Computed example of a mutant assay.
Amino acid sequence: MPKVLGLNLVGVIVASVAFYFVGFLWYGLLFSEAWMNAEGLTAADAEGQSPIWMIGGFLITVLQVIGIGLVLKWKGAASLGEAATTALILWFFLALPFVHYAYLYLPAHSVTLLLIDASHLLVGWVVSAIVLSLIK
């Protein structure tokens, strides 16, 4: 099986697609209106975006999945539960503080935006870790 930094390439791709799908659910279906309102966007604003940005978003997702995979590998998280717990801990100490930057420094201080973005990363990181633990 092909590897990327010692990780199963198929696992990385499947986990990245799963994480990206979580983003589609979060920002496209479940919290679309709340997120757009919190960002101050209209449907017309969203329609005018170039699809090239979606490629960039997927690449960022792949980098996150590789990072999660490397930590799981280094930690030796063998079981599904260990992988999910590790992702939760990583999210708490890395992703959650990171998304707080926007909350603290942007003038709006939007709790809605913070909750949507943080929960997206939580679910995406845990789903990625689970997929990576299943496809080694």
Results as ranks from 00 to 15, higher is better:
A129R: 13
A83S: 09
G57A: 02
F58G: 03
F92N: 00
F93I: 14
F93D: 01
T42L: 10
F31D: 05
S119F: 13
G48T: 15
E39R: 15
P107H: 06
E47I: 02
L122K: 08
L63T: 13
F31R: 06
T112C: 04
L121Q: 09
E33N: 13
L106G: 03
L90N: 00
F93M: 11
Y101C: 00
T85R: 12
K73F: 03
A129Q: 10
L30D: 03
A87F: 07
V126L: 12
G48C: 11
L63P: 12
T86M: 15
F31Y: 13
P107A: 14
E39A: 13
L94I: 13
G48D: 14
M54Y: 07
W74R: 08
G76P: 07
H120Y: 15
Y103K: 01
W125S: 12
I55C: 03
A95Y: 13
L106N: 09
K75Q: 08
L88M: 11
G56K: 05
F98W: 15
L104M: 08
S119D: 05
N37E: 12
L122H: 06
L132G: 12
G81P: 00
Y105K: 01
A129I: 10
T85V: 03
V131D: 05
L72I: 00
G67D: 08
I55A: 11
I130F: 04
P51E: 14
L114E: 03
L132E: 11
W91I: 02
G48Q: 14
D117K: 06
P97C: 06
A38P: 14
P107S: 10
F92C: 01
W53S: 03
A102W: 09
G48F: 10
P107C: 00
L96W: 14
A34F: 12
S119W: 04
K73N: 09
P107L: 02
G40S: 13
L41N: 14
I60M: 07
Y103H: 11
T112G: 05
E33L: 09
K75S: 07
V123M: 09
